[in-house]
Design a protein around this nucleic acid. Structure first.
Length: 580
RNA sequence: GGUCCAGUAGCUCAGUGGAAUAGAGCAACUGCCUUCUAAGCAGUCGGUCGAUGGUUCGAAUCCAUCCUGGAUCGCCA
């Protein structure tokens, strides 16, 4: 309703000028109406009470009488409980709807283009993807889609865990199994047992552990044969991850992979530059930096960030700093976005702080940790991969698709086999993604298998269903969508009014979702849109109508609704079938 | 102990740049399919917004203290 505020503002200004009140006294009071009913914006008069030496009720009544009559073409105006209430008029709604009907972007404008790096997904090589990885992957994907739609340049960065001490034992285990057998196990996605076998040997056999440690040294020394074996682990794992990505329908591809290993060459440079900035100090044998903002450890001592360990090895803070250099200096990014879990919050604050101190980043750069909560089980405990009973992502996805398939057989037996399988995938995957996207990301959330796979209520299938019903209306109509381009709207019923208002707030919601990196706001909006369409559908017959004017107007509302749903879902990474 | 986060209906969650009777979905219950897809629609039931103080004309929202749960706090990533 931003547009309504903009259009109504001059009228307020006229009224308040006649009352002798300056703009800065009243302009910030205008906000959304919180009362039930068909008012959209309101101005509470309570704070003016002392100034005008009158009760809020009297003030609001007076303001209403002072409005010029011209306002009524835009909105109805009334007062209640000391509020001035403004409700968009049908004619104003009709005019606004006509504007977006012919706009491919449904009223959404482009931002001034910036360059983003979005760091997300980041699975670990030779480790299973479980439901926890879903969040980063799905939220990151939606953020990328939103940024691209707003006209930004976006570098997708899949920072896979492909380096570090565990690779010693993984490579040794690969040798024990034999390359072919190991590759096969990894390629088909049996990562969990591969990792666990390696782990248990590492813990039970001193001989194996010592081989593993030697192997790590060889790997870091870039021994040729060791690198060859390491590459088998990485490429077979990636083959599997790519299958998951493809099922999931996310934008990530091989060209987006920027594993930890790819920042190797930069690590000595990180040390060098920190050292030249005079912020690197040696503490207990390790090279560390003390960030500007002080952090205390358990003992109450000031806490450093370790860049290089006592044994000379780099740890992940070094890699993250190298990443920042790469993104700001090679890719010329202005915005760095990290879609990583909340537990790493402090780590990122410290790293960003150091990057600023060392000049890897400047004031013009925005680094944002887009954090998300942990996945909990029903007892409120964190789901951990080593507990063993963790649900594999692929299993969740295939179960969801198969449930969707069963539901289609039950609800719409007329769909052909081919069509049904395609639609089942769109619905099954959509349901899982939406369940994850639709809650506020920074909170922990309880993983509920049935809720994740539910097809009723505030779910993606509900939105898809509304879209499919609209497609069905058009398939039964002689009037094509394209012929609606310059249609005139006739908004009469309250269901039409509510639907119209929701349609018009789409650009504002997109803005809100992306500026706070919150896909759940878009989800909630789309649900409210689909819900108001549901009421419209029940109460306002579209085709079964004698008045040609009303038919065209309602068809146009249908067209706008389906396009908004489709675009909105697309920005969440969810497909919209035309039949279901 | 330091820092940070959460506590809203039986369950899962929105709302937290203050504002008029705190909203959805699920579950439960009642209606609605010879009429554009009932994965739907209409309705009923359900809350001292963790507690206590404070600021304010007005607090789920801001401040303080406390309770409960969680994350994190030097050589894993």
């Amino acid at each position: 309703m931003d547009t309504l505020i903009k259009d109504i503002y001059p009228f307020f200004k006229e009224v308040f000028t006649s009352l002798g009140l300056e703009e800065d006294i009243w302009s910030h009071l205008i906000g959304p109406a919180t009362i039930e009913g068909d008012y959209d914006i309101a101005l509470p008069c309570h704070s003016l009470s002392r100034l005008m030496k009158k009760s809020p009720v009297d003030i609001s009544e007076q303001i209403v009488t002072l409005f010029s009559n011209d306002v009524f073409s835009i909105a109805k105006v009334s007062s209640k409980n000391g509020f001035v209430n403004i409700g968009a008029s049908p004619s104003w709604l009709e005019e606004q709807l006509s504007c977006i009907l012919s706009d491919e972007r449904l009223g959404v404008t482009n931002d001034n283009s910036r360059i983003f790096a979005v760091d997300y997904s980041a699975p670990n090589v030779a480790k299973e993807m479980h439901v926890g990885h879903l969040r980063s992957t799905v939220i990151g994907d939606s953020i990328v889609r939103l940024l691209l739609f707003k006209g930004h340049t976006v570098h997708r960065e899949n920072h896979i865990g492909d380096w570090g001490t565990p690779f010693g034992m993984l490579i040794e285990h690969l040798l024990d199994l034999g390359e072919d057998k190991a590759a096969k196990e990894l390629g088909v996605g049996d990562l969990d047992s591969f990792y666990k076998q390696a782990r248990s040997k590492f813990e039970s056999s001193e001989k194996f552990a010592s081989r593993s440690r030697n192997r790590v040294v060889l790997l870091q020394g870039e021994d040729k044969e060791t690198l060859r074996l390491w590459k088998i682990l990485v490429s077979e794992s990636m083959r599997y991850f790519n299958e998951v990505y493809s099922t999931l329908g996310v934008l990530l591809s091989d060209s987006d992979i920027k594993g930890e290993s790819s920042y190797h060459d930069l690590l000595p440079i990180v040390i060098d530059r920190l050292s030249k900035s005079n912020i690197l100090v040696n503490s207990d044998g390790a090279d560390v930096v003390f960030p500007t903002k002080k952090w205390l450890n358990r003992k109450g001592d000031e806490m450093p960030v370790i860049i290089r360990k006592g044994d000379g090895g780099y740890n992940y803070s070094a890699t993250d700093l190298a990443c920042i250099i790469d993104r700001t200096e090679r890719l010329n990014c202005t915005d760095l976005v990290y879609v990583v879990g909340t537990p790493q919050k402090q780590h990122f604050e410290m790293v960003f702080d150091i990057a600023l101190m060392a000049g890897f980043m400047h004031e013009k750069h925005n680094a944002t940790h887009v954090n998300f909560g942990s996945v909990l089980n029903k007892d409120g405990k964190i789901l951990k991969s080593r507990e063993g009973d963790v649900i594999k992502l692929v299993d969740l996805l295939s179960e969801s698709i198969s449930r969707a398939n069963a539901t289609i057989i039950e609800k719409n037996p007329n769909l052909s086999n081919d069509e049904r399988l395609k639609v089942a995938k769109m619905i099954g995957i959509g349901a899982v993604k939406y369940a994850d996207l639709s809650t506020e990301r920074s909170k922990d959330y309880i993983f509920d298998w049935d809720k994740m796979l539910s097809l009723e209520g505030n779910t993606a299938p509900y939105l898809q269903y509304a879209h499919a019903r609209i497609c069905s209306i058009f398939s039964k109509s002689d009037i094509s969508r394209s012929s609606l381009a310059n249609s005139i709207f006739t908004i009469v019923d309250k269901e039409e009014q509510l639907l119209a208002k929701r349609l018009l707030s789409f650009p504002f919601i997109i803005e809100e979702s992306i500026s706070t990196y919150s896909p759940h706001k878009l989800c909630n909006y789309l649900h409210s849109l689909a819900s108001s369409f549901g009421s419209f559908y029940e109460n306002c017959p579209v085709l079964k109508n004698d008045d040609e004017k009303i038919i065209r107007s309602r068809l146009s509302l249908c067209d706008l609704t389906s396009r908004t749903l489709k675009l909105g879902l697309e920005l969440l990474g969810i497909d919209t079938p035309e039949k279901m």
